[in-house]
């Protein structure tokens, strides 16, 4: 029965891409997985891509021992405040952040491994009413927090050993920032979506708020996942977790919208919808490169190729899926999907 649940099903006639089950891991000491991610771990001169799983009260690091065999290397205990999400720091090694809170994020902690002392540590990075957080390249972390009337958007950077360096403050927009995305290929550009459905662009070097552009009423409650600039235009991958389904256009899980930052005009480029015969709306998901994955209300995981503009693989709802994340991988090893089930099992699929 377990094997049947995990066999990926391709939508009829929608291509040859597929998901191949590589391995499963389950934390026997915890029944619920809140989030899953990957991080590079280097110890005794050996650098490996490890899996990180989070339960409500702890975060565990898993090392690959062989085909379908994982060893739990360490568990950080995080105390009374529940874990909400793992915040990976792209391209970093031995460092990962975690967001904790009740209904909202109340603090962010850095979890780290020190190869010098061969020890695992944790430190408090930020506290407050944190509305959005994202790990950036070069061991940086951006977060937005709300005081009574003011919003603070701040970047903190870490040394290789996890020490916090002087931060940078970004000019906040009037509206609450709901999500961030780095602009790929532009080291100093960052975008964010806001609670009133705008896209904002910052200059990370100067902290300037460069532009605010309304996304449009056709694309409500947008959350940005990925952004890149091409030929003078800004392309943003959006999801709409809180949008109402409309009869005319259904409820696509992801959309790509192109903006002209010079004029603030925009238009939709493509929408990622479920193939005919499948139902369910977007719950949560992840985008890496041209690949997007989402867990739907039906319990299905769906994968889309954003370049082909089509759904290319489905994990059926019998798997009772709760999480879908793309792993950090080498360019040569291809894409790897981490899919978490409600019983706490995490399945690794090669795409």
């Amino acid at each position: 029965a377990v094997a049947e649940e995990s066999i990926p099903v391709l939508p009829d006639g929608l291509g040859e891409e597929s998901l191949q089950l590589l391995s499963k891991l389950k934390d026997c000491s915890s029944s619920c997985v809140v989030d899953v991610s990957t991080m590079w771990w280097e110890a005794a001169g050996c650098r490996e891509l490890c899996v990180v799983t989070a339960s409500e009260s702890s975060v565990s690091l898993w090392k690959p021992l062989g085909p379908d065999h994982w060893e739990k290397v360490y568990t950080w205990q995080l105390g009374q405040i529940p874990v909400i999400q793992i915040v990976p720091l792209p391209d970093s090694c031995n460092l990962v952040c975690v967001a904790l809170g009740d209904l909202e994020i109340g603090e962010i902690r850095l979890l780290l491994y020190s190869s010098e002392t061969d020890s695992f540590k944790q430190s408090l990075v930020r506290t407050g009413t944190i509305k959005a957080v994202l790990g950036l390249k070069d061991r940086r972390l951006v977060s937005s927090s709300r005081a009574v009337q003011e919003q603070h958007v701040e970047i903190v950077s870490f040394s290789e050993t996890g020490r916090s360096r002087d931060g940078q403050t970004l000019m906040p927009p009037e509206e609450t920032v709901s999500a961030f995305a780095e602009v790929e290929g532009m080291r100093d550009a960052l975008v964010g979506t806001t609670a009133v459905n705008s896209i904002v662009i910052w200059n990370l070097k100067t902290g300037q708020l460069l532009k605010k552009m309304h996304i449009g009423y056709s694309y409500p409650a947008s959350i940005c996942h990925r952004a890149y600039s091409d030929s003078g235009l800004l392309f943003v991958v959006l999801s709409h977790p809180h949008a109402k389904e409309s009869e005319s256009c259904g409820n696509p899980a992801f959309r790509v919208v192109v903006f002209n930052p010079s004029t603030a005009r925009s238009r939709g480029v493509m929408a990622s919808s479920l193939p005919p015969g499948h139902t369910g709306r977007y719950l949560e998901g992840d985008v890496r490169g041209a690949l997007a994955a989402a867990v739907l209300t039906s319990g299905t995981v769906a994968v889309w190729d954003l370049l082909l503009s089509r759904c290319t693989a489905l994990l059926p709802p019998a798997g009772d899926w709760a999480l879908a994340r793309w792993a950090t991988t080498d360019a040569c090893t291809g894409a790897c999907l981490l899919a978490g089930q409600r019983d706490g099992t995490v399945c690794l699929y090669r795409y």
């Binding site: 000019m171 532009m186 100093d188 550009a189 662009i201 200059n203 100067t206 300037q208 708020l209 460069l210 532009k211 600039s229 030929s231 003078g232 235009l233 800004l234 192109v258 903006f259 002209n260 930052p261 010079s262 004029t263 005009r265 925009s266 238009r267 480029v269």
Partner: peptide, 23 residues
């Protein structure tokens, strides 16, 4: 997308917006 949809495009939009925006 055609240019007429989105208005005139600038390859240097990031530098231009940085020069115009308040410090």
């Amino acid at each position: 997308c055609s240019e007429s949809d989105l208005g005139p495009v600038s390859l240097n939009w990031f530098e231009e917006l940085s020069a115009e925006a308040p410090p």
